[in-house]
């Protein structure tokens, strides 16, 4: 609904203009950022650790090296993650199983960070289709993916949809819950990511737990690549990490499908 409001504003403001300006901003003390995922597909699984930096700083975000990182499941299995290059920690010794709960522990210097995440069962993609959209002020012209799946009835489900163009991941974060569509066949037009004929699109339907959903939902409000209106008061996303870190750790199960886009109107 917020999006619809945003569109309304956008239409109304068609006479408005944009201008890049300089706004003096404070330098916050660097905070730890952790991003890690375990899936039902074989690894290697990655945990990335970085810190925050000044808003106008054009250099790469500083990596955090020499951290101790391991993942544990609810049966007591442990997997240590080794540092491949500064800030990147990997493990390819295991494959996640839906129904299990995983926890992540990270130690940076003398600080500990911890998160747990439940991996829900995957929900299969029924089919993919394409639709052509002629383009408007707020969406590019092009082909858009339509995703069909069936929401399992009588359980609360949270989803994230990831789109790839070839092996290039899209930046739009699609999340949804089944509050209004429990047990229904679902068709979703995935706005925001336009394709051309001949492109190969990979669609991932991820089943996620509530905390990961909350993280991604609140993240999409402050994503620096998505426009935010004047009316919205931004805040940091809700993380499932303890210890004051930003980011999240997610155990997600996914279903994948591929479509090659063809000419059609």
């Amino acid at each position: 609904m917020k999006k619809i409001t945003a569109i309304l504003f956008f239409i109304l403001l068609f006479t408005s203009c944009e201008e890049v300006i300089y706004v003096p901003l404070n330098s916050a003390d660097p905070a730890i950022v952790i991003e890690g995922q375990v899936t039902n597909y074989p690894g290697p699984y990655k945990v990335r650790i970085t810190t925050t930096t000044d808003f106008y700083d054009p250099s790469k975000v500083p990596p955090v090296d020499n951290a101790i990182v391991y993942v544990e499941d609810d049966l007591g299995h442990n997997w240590y993650f080794t540092e491949q290059r500064p800030g990147y920690y990997n493990n390819d010794q295991f494959t996640g199983e839906p129904g299990r709960t995983y926890s992540l522990d990270v130690k940076v210097k003398d600080n500990f960070y911890h998160a747990t995440s439940y991996m829900p069962p995957p929900v299969p993609i029924d089919s993919l289709d394409q639709g052509y959209f002629a383009g408007t002020r707020f969406a590019d012209a092009g082909y858009y993916i339509i995703l069909y799946f069936t929401d399992p009835p009588d359980t609360t489900n949270y989803y994230r949809i990831r789109l790839y163009k070839g092996d290039q991941a899209g930046t739009v974060i699609y999340v949804l819950d089944d509050q209004l569509m429990d047990g229904n066949p679902v068709n979703l037009l995935l706005f925001g990511s336009a394709y051309e004929a001949g492109d190969t699109a990979v669609v991932e339907l991820q089943s996620i737990d509530e905390k990961v959903y909350r993280f991604l939902l609140t993240l999409s409000n402050v994503n620096a690549s998505s426009p935010s209106g004047p009316e919205y008061t931004p805040a940091n996303p809700e993380t499932n990490l303890s210890g004051g870190a930003l980011g999240y750790f997610g155990a997600v199960s996914l279903s994948r499908d591929t479509i090659v886009l063809t000419h059609s109107k």
Partner: peptide, 15 residues
């Protein structure tokens, strides 16, 4: 924002 950080290769504003 008083800073930014990276998540999935995009910048996120830090408040």
């Amino acid at each position: 924002p008083s800073g930014k950080y990276v998540f999935e290769n995009t910048y996120i504003n830090y408040f």
